[in-house]
Amino acid sequence: MKKIILIGLILSGVLMNAQSFQGKATYKTHRKFDLNLDKGKGKAKAKGMIDDALQKQLKAQLMKQFQKTYTLNFNKSESTYKQNEELSSPGGQMNGVRVQIMGNGGGSDILYKNINEKRFSNKTEISGKRFLIKDKLTDYGWEMSGETKNIGNYTCYKATRKREEPRTSFSMTDGEREEKKETVTIETIAWYTPQIPVSNGPGRFWGLPGLILEIQDGKQTIVCTEIVLNPSEKMAIKEPKKGKKVTQEKFDKIMDEHSKDMMERFKNKRKSKDGNSYSIEIQG
């Protein structure tokens, strides 16, 4: 009888520890760029508007804007992912060349994931208008691998996936808008550690038998730089509630319309000055 009670107490303790398990992971992001801008046409060429020096400055500016730090607060079934506060802005203009990063709400974004229910809620903003994207988590269909590497003190295993993705790019030269559509193959490589048994990771990545510590998604890389398990101060993981509720498909259409509107406004603004316009738009 005493043995049965003892076993019951041990099992209760294990369940309580699992229920109270929490962690905090810090991730840093960066992105590679192949920046090759036309040196200009017509008036822009005569003015030397886009030269090698300016291209170098633009590339440095873009790389800096994508070097962000995020914090993932998680327990066994839920998480929030939020950009840490920074002084830099998500876009800008340099020597008549406008840089606009679309789909990047910046520090105001909160991404909530519920792993058990396989859904997410993402609070984000477009030009000051708040949206709440509520939808199902993507089933990534990871291909598992026995390949390993160490990230910090953790042994990580490799998982991969490939997807076909439609991509539309825009450009403007002398006030004329050009649009290019293509389908590209994106490979995603994830490194996860079973030593932290939560099926979670940065951004919307999830679905592996361990916390994802590194993601290589096309030209974007996300790397975990710090992990704190069971911090002394308990974290409140709360799902965002405010904002216009939309599905991801609906939000993508809104983003597309907003992108076109921004390009048209920039075109008209530049034409009213000297007729020269260059715009770089990046999907965040």
Results as ranks from 00 to 15, higher is better:
residue 1 M to T: 14
residue 3 K to W: 13
residue 5 I to F: 14
residue 11 L to W: 11
residue 24 K to D: 06
residue 24 K to M: 13
residue 27 Y to L: 09
residue 30 H to Y: 14
residue 32 K to E: 14
residue 35 L to F: 08
residue 37 L to E: 02
residue 39 K to S: 14
residue 43 K to A: 14
residue 45 K to T: 04
residue 45 K to C: 02
residue 53 A to H: 06
residue 62 L to N: 00
residue 62 L to M: 15
residue 73 N to S: 14
residue 81 Y to N: 05
residue 83 Q to H: 05
residue 87 L to P: 03
residue 98 R to H: 11
residue 99 V to D: 06
residue 102 M to A: 10
residue 103 G to D: 09
residue 103 G to W: 07
residue 107 G to E: 15
residue 111 L to D: 03
residue 114 N to H: 10
residue 120 F to D: 01
residue 122 N to V: 00
residue 124 T to F: 02
residue 132 L to T: 07
residue 134 K to N: 14
residue 140 Y to R: 05
residue 141 G to S: 10
residue 142 W to I: 03
residue 148 T to P: 01
residue 155 T to Y: 00
residue 159 A to Q: 06
residue 167 R to A: 08
residue 172 M to W: 00
residue 177 R to N: 08
residue 180 K to H: 13
residue 183 T to Y: 04
residue 186 I to W: 02
residue 191 W to G: 01
residue 191 W to M: 08
residue 200 N to A: 10
residue 207 G to A: 10
residue 208 L to E: 06
residue 213 L to C: 04
residue 221 T to S: 13
residue 224 C to E: 06
residue 224 C to V: 09
residue 227 I to E: 05
residue 228 V to W: 03
residue 238 K to V: 15
residue 244 K to N: 10
residue 245 K to W: 01
residue 247 T to Q: 05
residue 249 E to R: 12
residue 256 D to E: 15
residue 257 E to S: 11
residue 257 E to A: 10
residue 263 M to V: 14
residue 267 K to Q: 15
residue 271 K to G: 01
residue 272 S to F: 01
residue 272 S to K: 13
residue 284 G to R: 03
